[in-house]
Design a protein around this nucleic acid. Structure first.
Lengths: 235, 235
DNA sequence: TCAAAAGTGTTATCCCTACACCCATGC
DNA sequence: GCATGGGTGTAGGGATAACACTTTTGA
């Protein structure tokens, strides 16, 4: 079959906004770009979509290169395609965001790519229209996490309720009453209490929990109204 | 500046899922495709992104061609980019959904394009991966309308509360108690009651309302929990 | 006068929020 | 024994959901 006539072809890229949580702050992973233009400047991890791969495959490939991780929570965010966004050549970029458990993350690979974690409030100057991508991703996870239990993806398999509460407080830049928080979390039936405790945060120790995966998948939708008063809930 | 080396360029298209409401059913607008492959088959309205336009501009241009309308509610949905989705040549497509007031819609233009409205439950066979686009758009508006007052975009500037309730019941395939519905709608302060009535639906007539635009923009976010029991609320 | 749709108010329930004290342990 | 963070219960208020009758008017 012949190709379409008189149409312009352009480059298609994927850029990933990778979120991680260190127990205190929500951070994203950036690299120092390895080629021109903007070589050496901070950038999201990205790459061009290859002829034989889908967009999701492309994002997963890039993410694996950057973090060493498979099976990461990855979701397509938006496509950015303004004509002048890459000065070198017209390129549309499909932005994805990823939520990773930083405890599984391979520092070795990070080092190869000159990657570094930055708190959301201290993002350096980014190339092209990537600041808009990051901002959209930030809004998206706040929006989505208010409705669905995605933030568990940022925690290790075993976590404590105070850790979880820190995460929510950090994502929404708010404080939550710990009695109400634990009541609501436990009421979802998403958590299974384990026998052992995390003693790193206190002398008494906090019980570990793990996700009840059956309920997690069943309730992934229908997790509405979880956050009382997020300070900025925008699409 | 030179171009990027050793990378494949590909076609980038935009496809629009155009929703309308005829007072009874939620429908989408389809056209009979005018060129190969799949010439003559039912398709979403789409086109290739031109060198000098952004994605939003491209979607607006296509929508104007199809409906004659400017200033339509239009939102980027997802980009579809599987390698084989268009058998003729690799093409990624950015799907947009639009909500239009069918009373403003120009039948003339529709006729030129062999366009036709189809109820969501009676969509004909569509080309390529467009069935997935339509399904995603359907889920998206159910999701979003549960949280934000977007469905007003489907109604004329003057509408009645029973019309609005029909729309919600149609979108969510549910029934709502009319006393509770009108209480909740009026509690939002989004509506301004007018003096005249719509007598087409009943002998007594129903008061017309119009949107309070100040409140509409202010409350566009924060419209949570509007639908009691949608029968399928999925991302 | 009757049929058909519009309009309206009250009550019970549930969920959310505010709030304070005891527990366990390492130092 | 004391400082630090972990864990738990209750009561009041606000929002939601269930529910039925009256009004209007064209035919």
């Amino acid at each position: 079959m012949q190709k379409y006539h008189n149409q312009t072809r352009l480059l298609l890229a994927v850029d990933c906004i990778v979120f991680g949580f260190d127990g205190e702050l929500l951070k994203i992973l950036l690299i120092q770009r390895g080629f021109e233009p903007e070589k050496g400047n901070w950038s999201l991890m990205g790459g061009f979509v290859q002829p034989d791969e889908s967009l999701d495959q492309s994002a997963n490939r890039i993410l694996k290169q950057l973090t060493g991780l498979d099976g990461v929570y990855l979701e397509q965010l938006q496509t950015f395609g303004d004509p002048g966004r890459d000065p070198k050549e017209r390129t549309a970029s499909v932005a994805y965001f990823a939520l990773i458990d930083t405890s599984k993350y391979e520092k070795q690979i990070s080092h190869d790519y000159h990657a570094e974690w930055f708190p959301l409030k201290k993002i350096p100057k980014l190339i092209f229209d990537q600041p808009a991508m990051v901002e959209m991703a930030r809004k998206k996870i706040r929006y989505k996490a208010a409705l669905h239990p995605i933030l568990f993806e940022l925690l290790p398999a075993k976590f404590t309720i105070p850790q979880l509460q820190n995460l929510y407080e950090s994502v929404y830049n708010t404080t939550i009453d710990k009695r109400n928080f634990s009541k609501r979390v436990l009421a979802t039936k998403l958590l299974i209490k384990l026998q052992d405790k995390d003693k790193s945060g206190s002398k008494r120790g906090a019980y570990y929990y793990q996700l009840n995966m059956q309920n997690y998948y069943a309730k992934f939708q229908a997790f509405l109204n979880f956050i009382p008063n997020p300070d900025n809930l925008t699409t």
